[in-house]
Design a protein around this nucleic acid. Structure first.
Length: 603
DNA sequence: TTAGGGTTAG
């Protein structure tokens, strides 16, 4: 390239064409030499030569590559003054492209209207502009208008269409675009195939995504990252890790995105061992341990129960951003160390960092654990000062904290005055009534929610069933349970079984409860068994109680509370030999019995 | 062409 420049120097009679070809070459050379294009243009002007349309198109491309909006605007202004390229498709499309890549898609969209004869290129630029503005639906509409005007889309149009469908999770249109590509014999390229993999996995069609991924001739970091993200979105963390291993095995160097997805998968799997390996990998391969990656390490360690490691990573970050603070706070909340989370919030404020609604949510969760009503009220009034009173997730957290602190009226009031109620808002208020033993009100809210066409999810049912169980509403609970499985086709999870077992147990229907326990996978059975054991004591069914007691001890031989429960049961039945035997087991295993406590602030 | 902290239950 430099040699070519020397050649130019040697040409004594330089004209616009020579200069323009130099500029074009610099633009095509790649990122590091692009800025030289502007130098050549300046030299050209110094020699009194005026750039022509081709020169300006190349310079616009340079501005787009360098995201140099200022230079791009200057070129645009120059073109207007000299009347170059106005209403010409190629020139206007280059202008649109420049504005979009420089982050000003609005100007690009307004330029579209001035083009006299539009070609696919100009339509594509408009579509790209909408996509960049985060308007995938508008982009799709442009594609359909374009098709109606009988303009044949090219692969770029179609790939952008696929991206829109991925964003909007519209499988049907995505599939029809894929079908159109096959029918019209357009050869799929690497970028379009990657977009298809992304679209199918975002639309939960992982099988099709993997088929396309496997058919790719050459896979790169991006295609692997897309596949990993697909697995993660569909809760296949194990497969995401395998894809990462496969990528490294194929000698493809992971980038920041790959590491972020890997850490996300490992935190889902709670696999701290491989999490530590990931840290080793980042250090060995001198990957930039930037905030993005550090924050994700904090999340991973916290999710795996290693809050101390998370704190170490947090402490080593030189310039902590909002995400670092919130991730660490969330880690503490997750492990019930709410005091430390509140401390962190204060430390963050003392470092003059502005919080956002997400940080406030973590703070509210911590305050909720501490039963700290006064501070929650402070947060509530603060929301109005900073105009966050309409932020649904924060209000949902407030509903929960008010309910947990005994202020059900306040929770209801917040709920009724919300501008927008999402599914979580309904779940929160139903849970609020449930925890106060107002089963009938919870059911009424459930009916109202259905009337306004909000589809309940598994959490809604957990809350409703808990509410029924706390209010002793066995028949209603059974009806809700049936509607969950039959009407809403929700497969009951462990928590639903536990609710039902609790419901039967409290009502003294011990046999039915015991039958249901058998549906829970044995590893997760302990919780249900404890509830049933308590019921056996209340209803004096010592025979079943003893059987359950033995089952609990088999399942949790290291849990001191399990021994306490079983020993109490035998004590009540006067079986002092058994009591002594269990006490001896506790001593032999070196376990200690600890007393429980609860904490709440008085109003 | 990809990727990051969000509310609810138990």
């Amino acid at each position: 390239m430099r040699d070519a420049y020397k050649v130019l120097d040697e040409i004594t009679d330089r004209d616009v064409v020579v200069y323009t070809s130099m500029i074009t070459r610099y633009v095509q050379s790649g990122d590091c030499l692009v800025h030289e294009a502007f130098d050549v243009a300046r030299n050209m002007q110094r020699e009194g030569l005026d750039p022509n349309r081709v020169t300006l198109v190349s310079l616009l491309q340079a501005a787009a590559l360098l995201q140099a909006l200022k230079e791009g605007r200057m070129i645009h202004g120059y073109a207007i003054r000299r009347g170059i390229g106005c209403s010409e498709e190629v020139f206007e499309t280059s202008l649109m492209d420049m504005y979009i890549k420089c982050g000003d898609p609005r100007t690009a969209a307004s330029l579209f209207g001035t083009i006299y004869k539009r070609t696919v290129g100009s339509w594509n630029a408009l579509i790209a502009g909408h996509l960049q503005m985060g308007q995938p639906l508008e982009a799709l509409q442009v594609i359909s208008i374009m098709m109606r005007e009988s303009i044949r889309p090219d692969l770029i149009t179609l790939a952008n269409g696929i991206l829109c469908c991925a964003d909007l999770k519209i499988l049907q249109i995505g599939k029809s675009i894929h079908g159109y590509i096959i029918q019209s014999g357009i050869q799929l390229d690497h970028v379009a195939t990657t977009a298809l993999v992304d679209m199918y996995s975002k639309c939960n069609n992982l099988v099709q995504a993997r088929i396309l991924f496997d058919r790719m001739e050459k896979r790169d970091v991006t295609s692997y990252n897309v596949m990993m993200a697909g697995y993660l979105q569909n809760e296949f963390a194990c497969e995401a890790v395998e894809a990462f291993i496969e990528m490294v095995g194929a000698d493809i160097k992971p980038n920041v995105g790959s590491i972020l997805s890997l850490l996300s998968a490992l935190s889902d799997l709670k696999d701290v061992r491989r999490g530590k390996c990931a840290l080793g990998y980042v250090i060995r391969h001198e990957l930039d341990m930037n905030n993005e990656i550090s924050n994700q390490f904090i999340n991973m360690y916290a999710k795996c129960g290693c809050v101390a490691y998370a704190r170490q990573v947090f402490s080593r970050i030189r310039y902590r951003d909002l995400l670092s603070w919130t991730s660490m706070m969330k880690g503490y909340v997750y492990h019930g160390n709410a005091d430390e989370a509140v401390n962190l919030f204060h430390m963050m404020k003392s470092e003059k960092l502005e919080h956002d609604s997400v940080a406030l949510i973590s703070l509210l969760q911590a305050l909720s654990q501490l039963g700290c009503l006064s501070l929650a009220k402070e947060v509530h009034s603060h929301l109005y000062r900073v105009h966050m009173e309409r932020e649904t997730p924060v209000i949902n957290s407030l509903i929960t904290i008010y309910a947990k602190c005994g202020m059900l009226d306040m929770a209801r009031n917040l709920f009724e005055h919300m501008t927008y109620r999402c599914l979580t808002s309904w779940n929160s208020i139903i849970a609020a009534y449930g925890m106060h033993g107002h089963g009938i009100d919870a059911l009424k809210l459930f009916e109202r929610m259905k009337r306004v066409s909000v589809e309940p999810d598994e959490i809604t049912f957990t809350s409703i069933l808990t509410a029924c169980s706390h209010s002793g509403m066995v028949e209603e609970g059974l009806q809700v349970y049936r509607s969950m499985t039959e009407e809403y086709c929700i497969v009951p999870r462990e928590e639903h079984y536990n609710c039902m077992i609790d419901l039967f147990s409290r009502a003294g229907r011990l046999e039915e409860a015991f039958d249901l326990v058998k549906c829970v996978p044995s590893r997760q059975r302990a919780c249900a068994l404890v509830a049933l054991l308590a019921a056996c004591r209340v209803y004096g069914n010592m025979e079943m109680g003893e059987e359950i007691g033995r089952l609990i001890l088999d399942l949790e031989p290291e849990s001191s509370s399990a021994y306490a429960l079983v020993s109490n049961l035998f004590a009540e039945g006067g079986k002092w030999d058994e009591v002594a035997r269990i006490r001896a087991m506790v001593t032999n295993r070196g376990l200690k019995m600890t007393a429980g406590y609860s904490r709440i602030e008085l109003r």
